[in-house]
Every structure is written in structure tokens, then in C-alpha cells.
Write a protein that binds this DNA or RNA. Structure first.
Lengths: 180, 180
DNA sequence: CCGCGTCAATACGGCAGCGTATGGAGGACA
DNA sequence: TGTCCTCCATACGCTGCCGTATTGACGCGG
């Protein structure tokens, strides 16, 4: 008997499949094969596929709300450095899970609400950073939202090498968005 | 006997299902039901589902490459007005098909190549507009790409009412991105 | 040793969806 | 009328996937 799995192993496997191939690839029997067990194990841990999906959303919510902000805060202390770190981190991240969640959110109102809440927190954080570096109050929100949209949008872009996009965003766009 | 369908009716139905519910919803029997026929008709017109999918990509490529540019060009004549029209048009568009194509592109290299080509043309158009209004050559490309990313990204955003986002982008962001 | 709880394997039946084969309907033309 | 072509309906068999039921394996404690 191998080491036994717990629920979190299944949730991780589900999120990996989601990120890699989309929601349609999150299949009970496929995940079981990925984990080298059979679906008996799955049904011991979960009522049905919907149960797993709900737990996946919750797991994503927990990590997504605080992950990027915590990392940026840990790495830099003044707002300008934090903005730079935020850009650098997002622009070099693998956005597949992020975008798979958004694809899912577009089709499921419950998931949509979770993503909206996450977006609101992140945008508020960016806005506060912009305000801290002297961007006028009348513009900080708009710039934060536009910036956030661009950072999300670049995960689904078919032009430009990722490294080039990161460099130009740091050298050209961030200074532009930061103007007082 | 009802009026007979041709291939394009099937392709349109496929694109509608894709936009509305994602690639997984593009199903032969479901499309047949949507069109009030049975799958016998489908298999007269197409070899298999893959045949339909390929034609859908081609149809999207044809329309996506020229659609937005043609509309903007028809509606406005000077570059500043064209930029404004571009923003206004995209920000008020239903981006579901656009994003469904991107979701698909993320998982299929062939589709990814089509989307990349489309993106390149659109970004080049935006860049040319920026250059025409006096944005420095060293910055026009970066600004065009970032702007394009943000316009794409806003289709998958969970914050802000669409109309508010459009207004603030037109009044605050476009002027900022247009600075010489 | 036995009982219990945790965890997992397997068999089963049902459904969605696919592609193939076959026959039907309608229209145009000789 | 018969033939041909275009288009479509239906039946069929197969596969993937789901959830349920049943049994087995293992570890722990009394």
C-alpha cells in the first residue's frame, strides 16, 4: 500500500490539470491516473466532481488573494521598489492557472465572484502604491486598473517574447504610469 | 424540408457556442440541435469535428485581422480620433469570442499562431497611430503593446463596471499614453 | 485475535458524444 | 418517369466518463 493521499493532493492535481489543459481536463479518472490511484480513492475523499471543483476554487482564492502581495511586501519596502517588484514578478510568472481561473470565471458566476474579489484587492494594492509615490489621487485608480488589466492581459498575448515585454514594461511603461 | 444550411451556418453556430460557453461546448450534436437539424447534415458538410474547428479558426482569422481596424478607419480620419475610436470600440465590445479564441490558443499551437499573427497586426496598427500623434519612436512600441494588453485584459476583469472603465480609460489613460 | 476506521481497487450501469452506414426527401434535367 | 445530386434523418456500435455499490488492505487499540 502506497502512502495514502489526502484531499489536498487531489486539489493540487486538479489545479495543475486546470492550469495545463483547462477546466475540461479536470476529470476524476484522469486525475486518479495522474496520482497513480483509482477513483475509489477520489470518492472516499469527495462527494463528486463538483465537490473537488469547489475546493479548488477555495484553494485558489486563499492563495491568490495574498500570494503576490505578500511576496512583493517581503521583497521590497518602499512603494517605488514594490511597484518595480510587482511588475517584475508578474511579468515573469507562469500565468496559466491565473488565466484558467478567469476562463472558468467567465462561465460560472460563483467563480466569477471569487475572481472579482481577488481583483478588487489586488487593484486596491496597486492603487495604494501609486498614491504613495505621488500619483495624483484623481488618476491613481484609473492607472492601477489599466496597469492591472495589462498585466493580466499579457498572459494571453501572442506577440513579443516574455522577457522583452518585461524589460520594456519596467523601463518605459512603469515610469510613464508613475508620473506625478 | 426546411431551407438547407451551408457550411457557414455551422461555422457561425460553432463560433457562437465557443464564445458563449467555451471550446468544450462546441459539440456536433448540440450544434445540430441549435440549428434544428440532426448530425446527418453535419457529416455531409464536414469530415469530422476537427474539420469544423479548423474552419472556425479560419473564419475568425479572416474577420479578426481586419474587423476592428476597418471599423476604426471608416469612422475616424485623424490618428488621435482613431485612437479614441479604437478605445471606445474595444472597451464597449463583447469580448467573449476574442477571449475564447485566446483560451483555445493557449492550448493549441496552431490556433496560437493565428492569434499571434492577429495580435502582431493590431499592435502594429496601434503603434503607427501613436507614432502619428507624436509619441517618441523609442516609446511607441512599448506603449502600443501595453495598451493592447490592457484592452485584451479588460475582457477578463472582475472589477469595475464596463462603462466606468471605458470612460476613465478615455479620459485619463489615453491622454497619458499619448503624451509626447 | 477482533473490531473499527481510513483509504483504495474494482465492477457495474447509465449517459453523452463521436463517427459510420444506410436510407429518405426534394429538386433539376433529360 | 428515371437518374443524379444535394442535403438530411436515423440507427448503430464504440469510447470516455460519471457516480454507486461492494470488497479488500492496512493500522491501531482493546
Amino acid at each position: 500500500m502506497k502512502d495514502s493521499l489526502d484531499r489536498s493532493a487531489w486539489v493540487s492535481a486538479g489545479l495543475a490539470a486546470l492550469a495545463d489543459k483547462g477546466l475540461d481536463a479536470v476529470r476524476v479518472e484522469r486525475l486518479a491516473a495522474d496520482l497513480n490511484v483509482t477513483k475509489g480513492s477520489f470518492y472516499w475523499h469527495f462527494r463528486d466532481r463538483g465537490d473537488l471543483l469547489a475546493m479548488m476554487v477555495e484553494a485558489w482564492r486563499t492563495s491568490a488573494t495574498t500570494d503576490i502581495i505578500t511576496r512583493v511586501e517581503a521583497k521590497a519596502s518602499d512603494p517605488a521598489d514594490r511597484l518595480k517588484t510587482l511588475f517584475a514578478t508578474v511579468l515573469r510568472a507562469d500565468g496559466r492557472l491565473e488565466m484558467a481561473m478567469r476562463d472558468w470565471a467567465a462561465r460560472d458566476a460563483g467563480v466569477g465572484a471569487v475572481v472579482a474579489e481577488t481583483d478588487a484587492r489586488r487593484v486596491a494594492y496597486v492603487e495604494a502604491l501609486f498614491a504613495s509615490i505621488g500619483v495624483p489621487a484623481a488618476e491613481a485608480g484609473a492607472r492601477a486598473r489599466f496597469t492591472y488589466q495589462a498585466l493580466i492581459g499579457q498572459f494571453r498575448m501572442g506577440v513579443g517574447a516574455a522577457e522583452d515585454r518585461a524589460r520594456e514594461a519596467l523601463e518605459i511603461i512603469l515610469p510613464l504610469m508613475s508620473r506625478p
